[in-house]
Amino acid sequence: MNATSASLSGTTARAPAVAMLRLLGGFQISQALYVTARAGVADELAAGPRPVGAVAEATGLRPDLLRRLLRSLAAERVFAYDEERDSVALGPLGHTLRGGTDESVREVALMWMETHYRPFGRLWSTLHDGVPAAERELGRPFFDWLGEDPDRVAGFSAAMADLMRAVRRDAIDALDLTGVRHLVDIGGADGTCLAALAGRHPWLRGTVFDLPHVVPAAHDTLRRAGVADRVDTRGGDFFQAVPEGADAYLACFVLHDWNDEQSTRILERVHEAAAPGARLLLVETVLGRGPAPEIATMLDLTMMGIVDGRERTLEDWRSLLAGAGFRLTRAVETASPMCVVEAVRTDR
């Protein structure tokens, strides 16, 4: 064996450990991404490469430390660092940290690191007693804590809007609204989803339904989209009641936040409000389905740590819906990690 083959053999033998070290260092990468997202580094590079010193001056970061951070994220294909010119450009993934673009997840980077990161240090306890790590860390259920601060609510709504544009868009495009005149978006947050649907379907009327302190954010979204004359808002608690009389009810990435008992309560309120034959449209992940199944398993871990929810298999969805008086009719896979789960109200 020559020196080259010995070196290659050693590298191959160490490959699992190297791969594991990258996984173990993921918490550092997520924080580095947060710093660049919060400082607006990707936005500074929208027009092309710039000297690191100029980016540091524009963002208020120390150039020597920014340079080291950019090198680390260049290995993750977020930025492209030119050592010779001491300049930086966006890498293949960098545009996703710019604000306001179709594929942006900048608000997700901010929200996850500001609300999810610290609680996950308590995951050990969750795996022993089932109490979500966030509830133990924050002293109360996550959504109760979130609702106490308008800035947290705004940040969460902005992150959900990013996810709708960047990850759920294909599923929203796949929604079949044939015959639907009035659609209620349950847990509709800032109205981004229903605004898009109403803009696409000029006959559609809609109602954005969410907690009273959340729905005010929808007013500006609907007005900017030019659909405020057809889409209204209602504040309330979907565990108590939802608006009545719609042709169809939409829940986009809502039920995964809740355990089966809580999800059944929400679905029962929809069943009470809906007329016989009304349709239910769920935009959710389905474990084992779609082009990026690893997103569903990652989100399942998120649900475990932050709330008492879960991602579900198709049979899980079928059973959950049947228990609340709905018959699953089909599940539509899309180009995104999200599926459209369709159901119809039945007599119980």
Rank of each mutant, 00 (worst) to 15 (best):
V52M: 07
E333I: 00
G187R: 03
E76A: 14
R230N: 03
Q262T: 08
V78G: 03
S104G: 14
A343M: 03
Y117R: 08
L204T: 06
M111L: 07
R224T: 13
R200C: 09
G277F: 09
T207I: 04
P92Q: 13
R168F: 12
V184C: 11
S319Q: 02
R67H: 15
A17Y: 15
L282G: 01
D43M: 02
R98F: 06
C252G: 11
T297K: 02
A159V: 04
R68G: 15
D316P: 04
V341K: 00
A47N: 02
L69Q: 02
R140A: 09
E83V: 10
V153D: 03
V35R: 04
G147Y: 08
L33P: 06
E83T: 10
A246H: 14
A335E: 09
D185G: 12
E135D: 04
D220Y: 12
V242H: 11
V341R: 00
D173M: 08
T101F: 07
C193I: 14
T334Y: 03
D86H: 10
T115L: 14
H116L: 11
A274E: 04
W317R: 05
A154N: 05
D300G: 15
V340R: 01
R165L: 12
A171M: 01
P141G: 00
R289H: 09
D247F: 05
F253M: 09
R165D: 14
G191K: 02
M338V: 02
R348F: 15
L45A: 10
A292M: 11
A47V: 03
L66F: 03
A246W: 08
I295T: 09
G277E: 12
L301H: 12
E137Y: 15
R85W: 10
P293W: 01
T313Y: 00
A273W: 13
D176K: 05
L280C: 07
M111K: 00
L93I: 08
F209Q: 02
G290W: 01
Y34F: 14
L299W: 07
E107M: 04
T221Y: 10
A189N: 08
L110G: 01
